[in-house]
Amino acid sequence: MFTKKVVVAYNDTDLSNDVLDYVHEILEMHAEIELNIVYAYEHPLENPSPFQRNYDDGAPEMLAYAEQIIQKAKNRFVDLPNHVEGFVYDTGPAAAILSHAHDHHADLIVIGNRGTRGLRELVSSVSRTIQTKSHIPVLTFPKFVQEEFEEEYHK
């Protein structure tokens, strides 16, 4: 078996839902693979400045929303015998995913890639950060845009 535990980064976008569809197909073939679904969000500031006083007001709602997102993702796997768990972290996504994979002895990280380029990719790409800092294999799914595919390959 190529993996025993898979960590999937999830944020309820079309791309992350496509990633879950792919992972579902893999789990259908291998009931022994465990799945950890990770959702991370930035927690509001603990000591806001006078200009940020109301920033922390939404913290309970953010956590409740995050838990709903994880439950939605887990529900996609109820038809399978695999062990599926969801985890919510209130820290940056790259750090949360890498830390979770290490702490839970994962064999593979699966994440979507929006296809940002240039400086933006180097500065803000979660998938790029995970690829460069992970000590385990990372499977990235590029965002597939039908129009770009047709222009490039059907000229």
Rank of each mutant, 00 (worst) to 15 (best):
Y22R: 11
Y22N: 09
V23G: 02
V23S: 02
H24T: 09
L27P: 04
L27S: 02
E28A: 15
E28H: 13
M29S: 14
H30Y: 14
A31Q: 14
I33W: 03
I33A: 03
I33L: 08
E34F: 04
L35A: 04
N36Q: 12
N36G: 10
Y39G: 01
A40D: 01
A40W: 00
Y41M: 11
Y41R: 05
E42F: 08
H43V: 12
P44V: 08
P44R: 03
E46G: 11
N47Q: 12
N47H: 13
N47E: 13
P48C: 06
P50N: 12
P50D: 12
F51T: 10
F51K: 11
F51I: 08
Q52P: 04
Y55L: 14
Y55K: 10
Y55F: 14
Y55R: 12
A59M: 05
P60A: 00
M62I: 00
L63P: 03
A64N: 09
A66C: 03
A66P: 03
A66G: 04
E67C: 00
E67I: 00
Q68F: 00
I69T: 15
I70S: 05
Q71C: 05
Q71A: 11
K72V: 03
A73D: 08
A73G: 03
R76P: 01
R76H: 04
V78T: 15
D79E: 13
D79K: 13
D79P: 00
D79L: 09
N82S: 12
V84D: 01
E85R: 12
G86P: 04
F87Y: 13
V88R: 05
V88M: 00
V88P: 02
V88D: 04
Y89I: 05
D90M: 02
T91S: 12
P93G: 07
P93K: 06
P93W: 00
P93H: 02
P93V: 03
A94C: 05
A94K: 07
I97R: 05
I97T: 07
I97C: 07
L98P: 01
S99M: 12
S99R: 15
S99V: 08
H100E: 10
H100Y: 09
A101S: 10
H102R: 15
H102A: 15
H102V: 10
H102P: 01
D103A: 11
D103F: 07
H104C: 10
A106C: 02
A106I: 09
A106W: 01
L108M: 13
L108S: 04
I109P: 08
V110W: 03
V110C: 08
I111A: 08
G112L: 02
N113W: 00
N113T: 09
N113V: 01
R114L: 07
R114A: 10
G115K: 04
G115R: 00
R117H: 11
R117S: 11
R117I: 09
G118D: 07
L122D: 11
V123G: 06
S125V: 03
S125H: 02
V126D: 02
V126G: 06
V126C: 03
R128H: 15
T129V: 06
Q131D: 08
S134E: 03
S134M: 06
H135Q: 14
H135A: 13
H135E: 15
H135W: 07
I136M: 07
V138I: 04
L139I: 07
T140D: 05
F141D: 06
F141A: 06
K143D: 08
E147I: 08
F149G: 07
F149L: 07
F149A: 14
E150W: 03
E150M: 12
